[in-house]
């Protein structure tokens, strides 16, 4: 489904990814965890096409997308929910949903179908994106991506600043989408519970070139993560 080989990318003189590799099978949900600043967001942005690849290969199904522009990748079925939601603040909720649909010339009925699965957005349709609460914005960002029926969804910290009840809702949407049309998901997370409850496989990113696979049931007792998230010493595990 998605194969990343020896990926190199960074900002200016600063290289963040220095030969990163990972493979996702169809319908798989893969979580990548790791401390702030290790390069998780850079990875997702590079996959979305927002950061230029400086080396390595990215293949989506049978297509080499390494040098493709973000819209080309989107047409091949790549969806992206960025960290911080990146809602179009000057567009209404409805217009936020419409951008991708219109850009890709999909039928307008897609919006109604999406709204059926996201009923909480319906009363807000004509409000500006900037007037939504954080949780509503996160749902909108997810709905905006799912409306385009992507084959692969890149999710960057969807749990950030979100209440647990809403997290359950987001989890449900993702599970449903996989069940209904076989969505593959690459999830970058800080929230171990959310990641472990959703993912089939979990990796801990330890550097710009290395991610170590962790049994997802043992995620909650992983020494590195515990040390990072709770400041606990190794021997406590």
């Amino acid at each position: 489904m998605l194969r990343i080989r020896d990926l190199r990318a960074g900002y200016g003189e600063l290289m963040v990814l220095t030969g990163f590799g990972i493979t996702l099978e169809p319908r798989q949900i893969v979580a990548i965890l790791g401390r702030n600043g290790i390069g998780k967001t850079t990875l997702v942005k590079t996959l979305a096409g927002l950061i230029k690849t400086r080396g390595g290969r990215i293949t989506l199904e049978d297509d080499d997308i390494t040098d493709m522009s973000p819209p080309q990748r989107a047409r091949l079925g790549l969806g992206y929910v960025p960290q911080g939601r990146e809602i179009f603040s000057k567009l209404t909720v409805r217009e936020n949903l419409l951008v991708g649909v219109r850009a890709r010339k999909l039928p307008l009925s897609t919006i109604d179908e999406t709204l059926e699965t996201f009923p909480t957005l319906r009363p807000k349709l004509n409000d500006l994106g900037s007037s939504l609460s954080g949780g509503q914005q996160q749902l909108l960002a997810l709905a905006r991506a799912l409306a385009l029926r992507p084959k692969l969804l890149l999710l960057d910290e969807p749990s950030e600043g979100i209440q647990p009840s809403l997290l359950d809702e987001i989890r449900q949407h993702l599970v449903d989408a996989r069940k209904r049309y076989g969505l593959t998901i690459l999830l970058v997370e800080q929230n171990l519970d959310f990641a472990s409850s959703l993912a089939d496989r979990a990796f801990v990113m330890e550097s710009g070139s290395n991610a170590r696979e962790v049994d997802r049931d043992k995620l909650l007792s992983d020494a590195t993560l515990l040390h990072e998230f709770l400041g606990a010493n190794g021997e406590q595990t």
Partner: peptide, 15 residues
């Protein structure tokens, strides 16, 4: 606190 950071035992049905 551990639940918030790690989710341990937050919702047993999920894990």
């Amino acid at each position: 606190v551990r639940r918030i950071y790690l989710g341990r035992g937050a919702d047993a049905t999920h894990s």
